[in-house]
């Protein structure tokens, strides 16, 4: 039964059960819920934030934090659209857009790990900086008239599924395996667990941290490109509030602000849970104004359950340690 206990002790399992529960209840409550189109709409709705959540999970596992992802989404979307509008072909425009995202991440990572500014403050200023730059470069207008080859990134269908969903799925599966299994990303957990001990264990802490911010910038940039392609235009308000939804999803999925824990799959379940709640409330005809409230409550409940679980596990562990110390002493006596 040990594996069962371990499984049920995990946040992914808990959130997964809640997600399933909602799906079962909703399939009875609304005939439309299980319709293929509705499920695809839910997934399409969360695909953009799920892409960002993949990199945000790694960042938060290493104890970092990024408030600027929403602005990066908008800024990269706007600059890529401008390049396309100026006649730059799709491939170079996309690559430049991705590079801009990564550079903004590098900038965040540099002032946080080398200059030593607090991550919240540093990325809060980036949030304003790059939202501001978006407004400046777009002159406050949406940028449309993008080529079809670019629009395909967000609008094409593969096996009857929209590309944003496919892109998100690939990144979530790949990201989950990498963070779970790769030696390289295992270092993120150590940094989040105890930064000083990680450094003395031979982990290149500063380099890993800068890289984690760069990856976050890169993924946010990709999300911006996908979003622009899907809408067929770059909107200056794209990604507003995205950072809070992504961070909420990552935390619901098992990460904490201190770092050292969390998983990409958990973060995906977190954003799926939020999307399902929104969808369910809409289908049930609940006043839309309640949606944000319910998501706040979900976060609080997830964190509370976790906290309660931890306190009792700690007490039990202390008891077991004591008992085994006693038996150990007796054996050697």
């Amino acid at each position: 039964m040990n594996w069962f206990k371990r499984l049920t002790g995990q946040r992914e399992f808990m959130i997964g059960c809640i997600v399933l529960g909602i799906m079962v209840v909703m399939s009875f409550a609304s005939p439309y819920f299980l319709a293929w189109d509705n499920l695809l709409a839910v997934l399409l709705g969360l695909s953009i934030e799920a892409i960002v959540a993949v990199a945000m999970t790694n960042l938060m596992v290493s104890g970092g934090f990024d408030m600027s992802v929403g602005s990066i989404v908008a800024f990269v979307g706007a600059t890529t659209a401008l390049l396309l509008a100026k006649g730059v072909p799709t491939v170079p425009a996309v690559l430049i857009g991705l590079a801009i995202g990564a550079l903004i991440g590098l900038f965040n990572g540099f002032i946080i790990s080398k200059v030593g500014i607090n991550p919240f403050v540093a990325t809060l200023s980036s949030l304003s900086l790059f939202r501001g730059l978006t407004l400046i470069v777009s002159r406050g207008r949406n940028i449309s008239g993008l080529p079809d080859s670019f629009a395909a990134i967000g609008q094409a269908m593969l096996f009857g599924v929209q590309t944003p969903i496919i892109i998100a799925a690939v990144l979530i599966i790949g990201g989950d395996i990498m963070l779970r299994r790769f030696r390289f990303f295992r270092q993120s957990y150590y940094i989040g667990g105890n930064e000083r001990a990680a450094r003395l264990s031979g982990i290149a802490v500063d380099r890993m941290k800068v890289l984690a911010y760069m990856l976050t910038g890169l993924f946010a940039g990709l999300a911006g490109i996908v979003m622009t392609a899907r809408l067929g235009a770059a909107s200056m308000t794209a990604g507003t509030g995205l950072e809070l939804r992504v961070i909420t999803a990552v935390i619901i999925g098992g990460a904490s602000l201190q770092g050292g824990e969390g998983s990409v799959f958990g973060a995906f379940l977190g954003s799926l849970l939020m999307a399902l709640i929104t969808n369910a409330l809409t289908l049930l005809g609940v006043d839309v104004y309640w949606q944000t409230f319910v998501i706040g409550a979900t976060l609080l409940v997830a964190v509370l359950i976790d906290q309660l679980g931890k306190t009792s596990a700690q007490a039990k562990a202390a008891g077991a340690a004591k008992a085994s110390a006693e038996s150990g002493a007796r054996k050697s006596a």
Binding site: A197, A198, G260
Partner: peptide, 24 residues
């Protein structure tokens, strides 16, 4: 290190993760 709690160990991690930290 002289200070196992703040600089040596990953206190919230299990024994196995602590033993693996410096030779991943």
């Amino acid at each position: 290190t002289e200070d196992r709690k703040t600089q040596g160990l990953f206190l919230d991690f299990p024994i196995r993760a602590n033993l693996a930290a410096n030779r991943l």
